[in-house]
């Protein structure tokens, strides 16, 4: 119990230190340059305290409940002894790592759903778009992107293929999608790449990458352990734009169906392929 209290106090202090530069800049400009009263100052101060307190509890809770077990899992699921079921490490093929890919996918999805900065951006997007962009749908699309990126990223580490090939291929897909995506969603989609990887995801992803790179024969933990975060910041752009494209496509189909209901059965088979092609 004492331990928990000390941990909380420690984390609270750490969070305060992290917030200090932001507070310093805000107060400096407020007092020195803008010289305007902040409306509802009391509410803002209470809210700021909530932000620090909330993050503190959140991080202490993660360290207690999630990180130890998640990191152990990442280590165990990348361990050649588990992957090969007793075979020597250098006889393993990339196909033997299916549990690793599946774990990477699942944990990428799950941690992204809980990511506080993504929740913030999703709330804002829902508010600004007047509900046209749903917060939950956006978070699901981003989480799916991170999940895919980690599955692909672990595959990359196992096979030892160079990171830049994946990045450049991803960039090309982003550029092509940008041409065909509803214009209002593009900036939000670009933003979603940067907000996905923070408090919850990064520690677990690092454990996963380092675990894999240090156990797969011929990989260097320091060189090949990097790159998972890079892909996790790229893929959500693709899935968010894909999500918007599917949404637009369905809206268009609905209005077309209202005019001509008979063609509905025909286009149903096409639904699956289009949706898949856009989101992968």
């Amino acid at each position: 119990m004492m331990n928990t209290v000390a941990q909380l106090a420690d984390m609270f202090l750490q969070t305060l230190i992290d917030v200090a530069p932001i507070a310093f800049i805000m107060i400096g400009f407020q007092v020195g340059v803008l010289r305007q009263n902040i409306p509802h100052l009391k509410q803002v101060l209470i809210g700021s305290f909530y932000v620090v307190l909330g993050l503190t509890l959140f991080l202490v809770g993660l360290e207690k409940a999630l990180f130890p077990i998640g990191e152990t899992l990442a280590k165990q699921l990348t361990d050649p002894a588990f992957v090969g079921g007793g075979r020597a490490a250098d006889t393993l093929d990339w196909t033997d790592y299916y549990w690793t890919y599946l774990f990477a996918f699942a944990i990428g999805f799950a941690t992204t759903i809980a990511e506080p900065s993504l929740i913030a951006v999703a709330l804002k997007a829902q508010e600004v778009s007047g509900g046209a962009v749903g917060a939950w749908g956006l978070r699901l699309a981003v989480a799916f992107g991170v999940a895919l990126s980690l599955a692909v990223g672990t595959f990359r580490i196992v096979t030892g293929t160079p990171l830049y090939l994946y990045m450049i291929a991803g960039y090309i897909v982003v550029v092509i999608q940008t041409l065909y995506t509803p214009r209002v969603i593009v900036p939000l989609a670009y933003d979603s790449g940067g907000v996905t990887t923070s408090t919850v995801t990064v520690p677990l992803v690092a454990a996963l990458g380092l675990g894999l790179a240090s156990t797969v024969p011929g990989r260097s933990a320091l060189l090949d352990g990097f790159g998972l975060i890079a892909l996790a910041s790229l893929f959500p752009m693709i899935t968010v734009m894909g999500y918007a494209q599917i949404g637009e496509w369905r809206a268009r189909r609905k209005s077309a169906a209202a005019e001509q209901t008979t063609r509905d059965t025909d286009s149903d088979s096409a639904t699956g392929t289009t949706a898949e092609g856009q989101s992968s």
Binding site: V44, S48, V52, L57, G61, A114, P116
Partner: peptide
């Protein structure tokens, strides 16, 4: 206990987000 902290922390953070940030 950790999960309860996480839930509470997330809720308080979101509240602070809307009130302050």
């Amino acid at each position: 206990i950790g999960l309860m902290f996480v839930m509470l922390g997330l809720a308080i953070f979101i509240r602070g987000l809307e009130m302050a940030l």
